Every structure is written in structure tokens, then in C-alpha cells.
Simulated scan of single mutants.
Amino acid sequence: MKRLWFSFLFFLLVLPGLTVQAQSKKKSSGGGGSGSSGYSTGIGLRGGGYSSGLTVKHFLSGKNGVALEALLTTEYRAKGARLTLLGEKHKSLADVQGLQFYYGAGFHAGSYQGRYYFDDGRYYRGRKDKDDYFRNRVYLTDETTYLAIGADLILGLEYKLEDLPFVVGVDYKPFFEVFNGYTGFYNDAAVSLRFTF
């Protein structure tokens, strides 16, 4: 947990420097944003299925639509956190100003304190009727902290509001994870709101 607070504190200390750098780039280039995105950097919240937390997206210089996104998230009911780094390619959609499609890939690392669960489904009397089907969720707990690492893909849509400094987005982010000797593939989807500058 101390690492999570350290990462969050580091993020808050670096944020003012990113803001000043983005504003000076904007003034020197005479325009806002990178390519057709309409902004250079966005900071906000991401709320979804497996992971919710902070999101920071920054477009690289040039008009190629390439951005780096960092997510500092935690899972629902989990004791721990995950840091995800993604490289993304953005493409404008025709006839809709401010709407973009993006795709990308990356990796993540995190730690969780010994809590995981799995589903154990059993059928009784050979039928899947709601009265005959029993589903049991088994929980296992301990106090050990485990490292989790994995690879991520992302597909999404985002819309830059025309008169406001906000971007609203939806994404689908499947990921593969190795956790305490277990491997798994998870489907994650989320909605995000970022303040842009």
C-alpha cells in the first residue's frame, strides 16, 4: 500500500511540470493539441469492470496521432493496485469533429494482498434450470502480497467536447495476467473522463 501512495504522490509532484510544459508548447506552436485530437494532455478518471482509477494520456509531438496513456488503477474488491502503460494510435472519424477511434497495446504490473476468488459451477440432476443449478463463489484469503504482471490491448472511442476542456471516452481493454502462479485472460471495459490542456 505504501508503494501506491508513493506512486500517487510522485504523480501529483510531476503534474505541475507537465502542465507548464504543455502550455509552453501550445504557445510556441500557435495551436492546441497534437494532430486532430484537439488536445495535448488529458488527466482524469477511468471507471470500469476490472480496473478503476486515474488515467493520464499525452500525445507525442507531431501530427501522427500517437499517444502514451498511463493508468493507475485498483480492482473491484482487491487490496492492491496496478500501473498500466499503453501506446495508442488515434484516427479521426469522418464527418464528426472531435470523435476519434484508437487502438494500442502495452503492459502492466501491480501487487495484491492475497485475495482472489473463482467460480465453481455445478449442475444437479443434469438440467440447467434455475432451480437445479447451483453456483458457488469460493473465496481464498491470506495476508501475503503478490506481484501481478501482464500484457494489455486496448480499443476505444473518445470525443473531445467542443467548447469545454474535457474528453469523454469508452474503451475495451482485454488483458492477460500472471498472478501467484495463476494465469488468466480478462475482459475489461470502462468509461473515462479527462480534463484536457
Rank of each mutant, 00 (worst) to 15 (best):
H108Q: 04
Y76P: 08
D119P: 10
T41Y: 15
L72G: 02
E75R: 12
A78N: 12
S111P: 04
G106F: 00
D119N: 13
G42S: 05
S111W: 09
G42M: 04
F59V: 02
K91N: 08
A94K: 12
G42I: 05
D120Y: 14
G98H: 01
Y39K: 06
Q113W: 01
L83F: 10
A78P: 02
S28F: 10
Q100G: 08
R122A: 08
R77I: 07
G121Y: 14
T41H: 11
L72F: 12
S92T: 13
K79V: 06
G35H: 04
G62T: 05
G121T: 14
G30H: 06
G31K: 15
H108R: 00
S40R: 14
G49D: 15
A70S: 13
V66A: 05
D95R: 11
A109R: 10
T74R: 11
S36L: 15
T74L: 08
L83H: 05
V56E: 05
T74A: 14
L99E: 10
G47V: 13
L60M: 12
G80M: 07
K89M: 00
I43F: 15
L93R: 03
S61V: 03
D95M: 09
T73K: 03
K63F: 01
G121V: 13
F59S: 00
L93I: 15
G35Y: 04
G33F: 06
F101Y: 11
G110R: 00
A109C: 08
G42H: 06
G47F: 14
E75V: 08
G33K: 05
T55P: 00
G62V: 01
